[in-house]
Design a protein around this nucleic acid. Structure first.
Length: 633
DNA sequence: GCGGGAATGA
């Protein structure tokens, strides 16, 4: 086939073919002649010759030829928008197709502003947009995150009756998703009569892009239920990402299986996602073995492994992997250094942390960002160097953000340093922190110091600002369903058996010499009430539920939205020994609030080895976790 | 007549 097209081109260009005779050929044939000439062009030079040829033949003013000249020049890989535009400007009365071509080409060229400008011109000059016009426009709005414009154009499409065109709808879902208007995206999706594979992809990507992982899983379930399931690589990677963020190890393993069955060779992206999933769901060993078996690794594979090891408290191993990366000749970036510094922080490697921090700039020319400074504050805070951490913050060349101050506040809480804790909290409040956790920590510190009037002040301030304490909850996956428990939960259908189990567990614990530690139930209530409150912590409910509903020896993996209290930590550790279960608890890492914030890694810890973690901040809002998520395949 | 949508990892 390739040979034929070269031959055709040769005939056209040297020597040029005779212009078709109008008496010999009908108009349609002549047009097709022009079209095939344009299609055979391989670069701009050839196109210019073809252009000249068509002008010479006197066909340029034929609207079909002119349109296709613009289209060929604008949309091909070798095309030039300037040249295409100059041809477009020679057309007296451009119609829908010509405008559509220009709009599509500018979108392809990532020149979205120009694409929208052409749409305006199209309306001004009275060319009627059609259903081909809108997908390109919505794509432009999606890239520009132009919510207002997108909605306005959606209104036009609706008025012109193109709202039920599946292409228009798919691009609308994408546009609303990218603009963060998920409720609009899902409304469009729900209203569709016929959903294509692209529709499912679009809505899944929209949920994933906003970190709404439960919804993501639900859509996967619906998709397979409706028989639209296609095991595409990209879809499975998104599914893995959802599993990672929800700690859904069983589903993650199923996804791994689906990948192995359907994809012949797993590429770097897939393998990196698998490692990330296993590590963050608590299977460090599995992640490590996949990592070491990789044929090819890139910067991101290393980042995932380094920060994964950091989360599990294996600082030295993380630094070894980091050296391995340098030996392989890969240049570390700022994200790698976030992993490296947090590895030092989690493992208490203060000197190594400072060395890496210095090396980052001197050897790799990476200017430390506020995240890196945050890691350093965390490093010092965890090591109990509270005063040094405060000095460090005061000497920072960039303005410390809320994350930095929050890190210091957390450290102050663990070390019971009320004086510096107050300073950190003051800065957080000055930064207009809307995070109820900040208020709660300070209030708890006052409570610990028995300064009840200060506690009341903080609580009133919270009420005044309309901030509610985020309720603690725990997620546990049993039999492919993610179960959610909130503190003092009585809503679960198996509530009765869970509390019976808690009762049984308590007897076992008492036998082992456990006494409840209520020092972190920071309410001005009597001891009995404190014990009662502590019993109903969501983590304990989740463990009880998992013990009842999983077979002996099955590891239990829990994800929580708040840090666990000392009592839950001791309790869990003992239960792990008594019932001979490996129990892993994962909790969120502080991170900037906003879309995608859930993308940040959550530290996981093996209870048998790690100390009580001092990470506090809640990231998952109530809406982002549904009560239970059915995982059907 | 010529032209359209979605889509992977820290």
């Amino acid at each position: 086939m390739a040979g034929t097209s070269v031959l055709q081109r040769t005939n056209f260009f040297s020597p040029p073919a005779d212009p078709p005779q109008s008496s010999d050929l009908n108009l349609r044939l002549k047009e097709q002649h022009c079209l095939s000439l344009l299609k055979s062009c391989k670069n701009l030079e050839e196109f210019k010759q073809a252009h000249a040829q068509i002008v010479k033949w006197g066909f340029f003013w034929n609207s079909f030829s002119a349109s296709n000249l613009v289209a060929a020049c604008a949309l091909s890989d070798w095309g030039s928008m300037d040249y295409a535009c100059s041809i477009f400007r020679q057309i007296d009365d451009p119609g829908t197709f010509e405008f559509n071509t220009m709009i599509r080409a500018y979108v392809k060229d990532m020149n979205f502003g120009e694409a929208l400008a052409f749409y305006c011109e199209m309306l001004e000059r009275g060319a009627e947009p059609d259903n081909f016009t809108y997908p390109a426009l919505f794509k432009a709005c999606a890239w520009l995150k132009a919510k207002e414009e997108g909605m306005q154009i959606h209104g036009h499409a609706f008025k012109l009756g193109f709202e039920n065109d599946v292409y228009v709808q798919n691009s609308l879902i994408n546009m609303y998703g990218k603009c963060g208007q998920i409720e609009h995206a899902s409304a469009v999706f729900e209203q569709m009569d016929e959903k294509s594979v692209a529709s499912w992809s679009a809505i899944i990507a929209a949920y994933a892009g906003l970190g709404m992982w439960s919804e993501c899983l639900m859509v996967f379930g619906n998709m397979s239920g409706e028989g639209c399931w296609r095991p595409e690589e990209s879809t499975l990677v998104t599914l893995l990402s959802a599993c990672t963020h929800l700690s859904a190890l069983d589903l993650g393993k199923c996804t791994h299986g689906a990948l192995l069955r359907n994809i012949s060779e797993l590429n770097v992206i897939v393998q990196t996602s698998l490692i990330d999933m296993y590590v963050k769901c608590g299977c460090l060993e599995k992640g490590l073995s996949l990592f070491h078996r990789m044929a090819e690794r890139n910067q991101m594979s290393y980042t995932v492994m380094i920060s994964g090891l950091a989360m599990h408290g294996h600082g030295e191993e993380a630094l070894r992997i980091y050296s391995m990366m340098l030996e392989e000749g890969l240049e570390p970036d700022d994200v790698v250094y976030v992993g490296v510094l947090s590895a030092c922080s989690h493992a208490g490697l203060v000197n190594e942390g400072f060395e890496c921090f210095a090396r980052m700039e001197s050897e790799h020319r990476i200017e430390p960002t506020v995240q890196h400074y945050g890691c350093m504050v965390d490093l010092m805070g965890k090591a109990g160097m509270i005063n040094e951490a405060l000095e460090f913050i005061n000497s920072m060349p960039i303005k410390p953000n809320d994350v930095v101050w929050r890190s210091l506040l957390g450290a102050c809480r663990v070390r019971c340093n009320l004086e510096i804790g107050e300073i950190a909290a003051k800065h957080l409040f000055q930064l207009n922190s809307q995070n109820p956790g900040d208020y709660v920590i300070l209030s708890n510190m006052y409570a610990q110091a028995e300064k009840w009037s200060e506690v009341a002040k903080i609580r009133m301030e919270m009420a005044r600002k309309g901030l509610n304490q985020v309720p603690g909850f725990s997620l546990v996956e049993v039999g492919g369903i993610i179960h959610k428990f909130v503190s003092q939960d009585t809503s679960h259908p198996r509530c009765k058996s869970i509390y019976d189990m808690i009762h049984q567990m308590e007897w076992q614990l008492k036998f082992e010499g456990y006494t409840p530690d209520t020092s972190q139930v920071l309410l001005d209530v009597n001891e009995e009430e404190k014990i009662q409150r502590s019993k109903g912590h969501s983590q304990k409910l989740a463990i009880a539920f998992a013990l009842i509903h999983t077979s002996k020896g099955t590891p239990i993996r829990i994800a929580t939205n708040l840090r666990m209290c000392n009592d839950c930590h001791t309790y869990t550790k003992l239960i792990s020994i008594i019932y001979e279960r490996e129990i892993t608890v994962r909790f969120p890492k502080r991170a900037p609030i906003g879309p995608k914030s859930q993308k940040n890694p959550c530290p996981a810890q093996r209870l048998n080895t790690a100390e009580v973690p001092d990470v506090t901040i809640s990231l998952w809002s109530q809406e982002q976790c549904t009560e239970t998520t059915e995982l059907t395949w």
